[in-house]
Design a binder for these strands. Structure first.
Lengths: 336, 336
DNA sequence: TTCACCCGTCGAAGCGCTTCGACATCCTTG
DNA sequence: CAAGGATGTCGAAGCGCTTCGACGGGTGAA
């Protein structure tokens, strides 16, 4: 292993001069700098992380805190991870996958041991136990997902409010006048995720703007819940022709339930969803959807992190604009 | 950040005693050790990586050198990565994804900067440019894939020879007497991968053992190549009833070509493949196959690495036994 | 009772690097 | 020609930790 003293000896200067010549933190004469650089190159010198004083120069490593509970979400998590890694590479950083502990433990470990310069934190919940830690740690971080109280943090997420609006806009443009939102299970709105509530806001406000008749229905999962909600919707709103679904596992059962009740999709009923693209594409009827842009979120998170590291100011919350992809589940309303 | 001196002060001992008490590298009285441990726990002490002398204690990080060229193989690579990460977690290690440079650069960087204790190297080729480096670096490593000259390295791979045999055994057991291997493109056998050649060996020797008539045909990809090879096989070996395919992209076109020639799979022709499970399962006809067990390979690699780190001897080359999964493409030969 | 030895602990050195303060030069200026 | 300021370089300290060598006190044996 070639160290700074080797370079110094070969260049005929002191180690500190080498350090300055390479870092540019102090003015060094052109001749000396060139000599040092040549020596470093010839010897294949590469600074060893062990030598850094703890708070000193960066290790060029980004930590990625991803809850990799076996079996859960693996494809989606993966998509994020790949995009983070790719983006990190573009910024000349490596990525340290955090797998120990359930999150707090791992983050503290990275910060204390100085293993990474910064962290990307995935799967953020409304009241995430990691938040106080992130606020107090000297480790810059970016969250994917917006918690209840984002003060003092940096967050990226899809703009779920706009996503809700976009679905309604789409249905309204197709001529639908009575719409419903079939949402996530009630408990989601209470305790877990902020985005669910924002989606509802967007849905409602867009419906009002278009002067549509609209209702919102949190809904559990499973075939029975699907049947129940479908029947109820038809009973309470016989004129219903547009449905927005924000509940991945319910997608297929719901389409099924509607068809059993004699409503074809999209013939009698148009349906849009907010979900990952693969889910929408592989449903019984490919569903027009607003995609959760995992890849772009990852990229964006890394960008923000790099800016933070360079000391540049970053916005507290970045919301990505949603994009709607038309598939086979929506059509213009047939006028009676 | 709480450091070793803080713990020492609180426990009323010297920093070195703390170090010994926690590492167990020297005998420390029970009372002192308990006091130190209590102090460390109360203060939330965690050693900082920066303090380690370069060759000293481990950082508990495993590097994963994965050629993440965008778009290439992502799902397969991912499966490996996930299994490596999961296994690493089981051994209380984090995983550093190497993304810089094309491989040599990244490995050298990790070794020099002391970022990881060891490395898992994926996508190893017959003449891999990283091999000399791996031999000379002070960084223990395990390769996934066996190169031409594995001396001085540690490798894990599927036992492709046995995989070839297994396919033939299966066909023989079903009563097939004339078999053919449709392999990878010729250049693969020449320059790239060792496993292709080993598969051929296994195929041939098993065929001989069962006294089957057998032929081997390297083959390019694409619909035309498939048609050509299918016609040629039937012309040269009209009695052919068993085919082994080791060429993923050719799978579907080949089945197609055979059926156009009037041969049903598996009615007239039984077909087995060596490929990842998803490819086999989603082919036109689900194909009986020997799976490349990515997950197990990753796990095994980490196991070996951990053993190496602990100083235990490890076998140079570990070949995993193949397992054959029956699907819809093989059937007993119908006796004329 | 004395000597030898071992156990448990400590002090100090050292890892490779950065960075602060100091010190030569050399070039401006007055 | 002297004083002052740049400019470029060096020595030394220090980061948090490990580890070597040493030392003191207790124990057991003679």
């Amino acid at each position: 292993m070639v160290k700074i003293t080797d370079v110094a000896r070969r260049a005929g200067v002191s180690p500190s001069t080498v350090s300055y010549a390479l870092s540019g933190k102090r003015p060094i004469s052109d001749a000396t700098r060139r000599r040092v650089q040549a020596a470093a190159r010839e010897l294949g010198y590469r600074p060893h992380a062990g030598g850094r004083p703890p708070a000193g120069r960066r290790s060029k490593v980004l930590a990625l805190a991803v809850p990799l509970r076996p079996g859960v979400h693996v494809p989606v998590v993966t998509e994020f991870a790949v995009s983070v890694v790719t983006a990190a590479r573009a910024h000349d950083h490596d990525v340290l996958l955090l797998t120990r502990g359930e999150g707090e433990e791992g983050l503290r470990h990275v910060a204390d041991a100085g293993l990474a310069d910064a962290a990307v934190v995935m799967d953020v919940q409304l009241q995430d136990p990691r938040l106080p830690l992130l606020r107090s740690l000297p480790l810059p971080s970016v969250l994917i997902g917006v918690p209840a109280e984002p003060d003092g943090l940096t967050c990226v997420d899809l703009d779920f409010r706009a996503a809700g609006e976009l679905c309604v806009d789409h249905l309204a443009r197709l001529g639908h006048r009575v719409v419903a939102l079939v949402g996530s299970p009630p408990e989601v709105y209470v305790r877990r995720t902020a985005f669910a509530r924002r989606l509802v806001e967007g849905f409602t406000s867009a419906a009002d703007r278009h002067r549509l008749v609209s209702t919102v229905h949190p809904c559990g999962s499973g075939r029975d819940a699907a049947r129940a909600i479908a029947e109820r919707l038809l009973r309470e709103q016989p004129a219903l022709t547009g449905v927005v679904v924000h509940n991945e596992p319910l997608l297929d059962p719901l389409i099924d339930a509607f068809e059993r009740l004699g409503l074809r999709v999209p013939g009698d009923l148009s349906l849009t969803a907010v979900c990952p693209a693969p889910v929408a594409g592989s449903a019984r009827v490919p569903v027009t959807s607003v995609t959760v842009p995992s890849a772009e979120l990852g990229t964006r998170a890394v960008h923000l992190l790099v800016r933070k590291l360079s000391g540049a100011p970053v916005p507290q919350t970045t919301l990505l604009p949603p994009r709607l992809t038309e598939r086979a589940s929506t059509a213009a309303r047939v006028l009676a």
